[in-house]
Write a protein that binds this DNA or RNA. Sequence first.
DNA 1: CTGCCACTTCAAGTCAACTTGAGGTCAAGC
DNA 2: GCTTGACCTCAAGTTGACTTGAAGTGGCAG
Lengths: 136, 136
Amino acid sequence: MKRVDIGVLSEKSGVSPSTLRYYEEIGLIQSVGRHGLRRQFDAQTATQLALISLGKMAGFSLEDIKGMFAKDGSPRLPRAELHLRADALDQQIRDLSRLRDALHHVADCPAETHMECPKFKRLMNFAARTNTRHKV
Amino acid sequence: MKRVDIGVLSEKSGVSPSTLRYYEEIGLIQSVGRHGLRRQFDAQTATQLALISLGKMAGFSLEDIKGMFAKDGSPRLPRAELHLRADALDQQIRDLSRLRDALHHVADCPAETHMECPKFKRLMNFAARTNTRHKV
DNA sequence: CTGCCACTTCAAGTCAACTTGAGGTCAAGC
DNA sequence: GCTTGACCTCAAGTTGACTTGAAGTGGCAG
């Protein structure tokens, strides 16, 4: 397995060295050695960081993400649970699609006040009570 | 316009009274009067809260959201900008779809270590460098 | 061999988004 | 009329996710 210096990984992934150290400290990723003082990571860690980035984008906390994947990136959860999460995510995707549609709508709708526009309200009111944070 | 007590709005929207006060304090929503000491809000505020919830889900900060919508919920941005945001959101939706697909994949893929699975890596590596936070 | 510079540690600081606590108020039900 | 409970204010505390600062180190270019 190829190893890369922290600077290289940082450059490749767009995650700052201090954040990489922080992620290692909380056990989200792991370094595989040193080159002088400098941490070295498995090149694969880049893929893991992409996964972490997506997880964050989906609203998971680092703690949640840590619970989902082992330090080497392999999943820690049983199949059924993974499918469940995927389904929850799918719901979220539908919600975001509604926000996107709402944005397009308000950009184009001639109505004076969108809060009164029935089409807009219909778009929004499905969204009520959806939670911004995933519970784990 | 119908008015509701803070407790009722909280109940309807799933947002706690303290959060509603906080949102008012930072100018994200506004109350329209008092019933004794209790704040009253326009019933429409529920729709606004749904919008705020979606915005948060999409990764916008409250400050961002405040910049996008006036206190009455009407958009503050020109058409073109709204379409731009909608497009950015669409990109994010595609990323999340990839995460969803990845979750389904690791749930079903028999490969020992997913970090090595080419299909998985392909799914992930598009996601590299996508930012979790929208820039505004 | 000498700088340089990106890293190192460790503690402390920051920022957003709330929540909590103390002490107070008031409309509604009994 | 009195109690109760959900609200009120204001300040301070909390949590997550990092970043910053000070003081030090070590590989590599010249």
